[in-house]
C-alpha cells in the first residue's frame, strides 16, 4: 500500500453536469459520489448524508427526472445529466408540500426531511391521488429515526389534496 503512488491514483475525472439549472464543471476522484460532489464540491448542503449505502434516503435527489440515492451514483456517472436537489424546490418560497410538512408536525430533527420532501415530491408527481398505503410503500426507502412517519403521510395527503383542488 505504502509503495503505491496515491497522488497518481487520485487523478481526477472531469465531469460536466447540470445542478438545479446551473452547469458545473468538476474534477473529482473516480470514486467521488454524486452526493459528496453536490455537498463538498458544489457546496449545496441541503442534501444529507447518513448511511451512504442507499438504505436511508437522506441523500435523495432527482437525476434526469427520477429520484435516486445520490450516495449510490458516482459523480462521474452524472456526466451530462440534470440533477435537482432540495434547494431547487423552494426558490420562490416554501412549496405547498413543504408547508404541509410544517403544518403536520412532520419535522423533528430534520436531517431526513430534505430527502423525504424530494421522495414525496416524486410521489405526488407520479401518483397525485396516492392512498395512505401507497404513500407508505413509495416512501419506505426514506428512514426517519425521529419516526415522523404518521405526520409525513398526513403532510403528503394534505399536499395532494391542495394540488387536486387547484387543478
Amino acid at each position: 500500500m505504502s509503495e503505491r503512488d496515491v497522488s497518481r491514483e487520485l487523478a481526477p475525472v472531469k465531469v460536466t453536469l447540470d445542478v438545479n439549472g446551473t452547469a458545473h464543471r468538476l474534477e473529482v476522484p473516480a470514486h467521488r459520489t454524486l452526493l459528496d460532489a453536490i455537498r463538498d464540491d458544489i457546496g449545496l448542503t441541503g442534501t444529507k448524508k447518513c448511511c451512504a449505502d442507499g438504505e436511508c434516503g437522506a441523500c435523495t435527489v432527482f437525476l434526469d427526472g427520477r429520484i435516486v440515492n445520490s450516495c449510490l451514483v458516482l459523480c462521474a456517472e452524472a456526466e451530462g445529466c440534470s440533477v435537482g436537489t432540495i434547494e431547487s424546490l423552494s426558490v420562490g418560497g416554501l412549496t405547498d408540500l413543504q408547508e404541509e410538512f410544517l403544518a403536520a408536525g412532520a419535522v423533528q430533527c430534520g436531517v431526513c426531511i430534505p430527502g423525504q420532501v424530494m421522495a414525496a415530491e416524486a410521489l405526488l408527481q407520479t401518483n397525485p391521488t396516492a392512498k395512505p398505503a401507497e404513500i407508505r410503500e413509495a416512501m419506505s426507502g426514506n428512514l426517519c429515526r425521529c419516526a415522523g412517519y404518521e405526520r409525513i403521510v398526513a403532510a403528503i395527503q394534505a399536499a395532494a389534496k391542495r394540488r387536486g383542488s387547484s387543478r
Binding site: 500500500m1 491514483e9 473516480a30 470514486h31 459520489t33 451512504a52 449505502d53 442507499g54 440515492n69 450516495c71 449510490l72 451514483v73 458516482l74 462521474a76 456517472e77
Partner: peptide, 26 residues
C-alpha cells in the same frame, strides 16, 4: 461493470483503495 451501481458502489465504499476499474455501460 457499472450500470445502476446500487450493489457495486456499496462495495466500493468499503474498499475505496482497491484498484478497481469501474466500466460504465450507460
Amino acid at each position: 461493470l457499472l450500470v445502476g451501481g446500487t450493489d457495486l458502489l456499496v462495495a466500493v465504499r468499503r474498499r475505496p483503495l482497491d484498484p478497481l476499474v469501474l466500466v460504465d455501460l450507460k
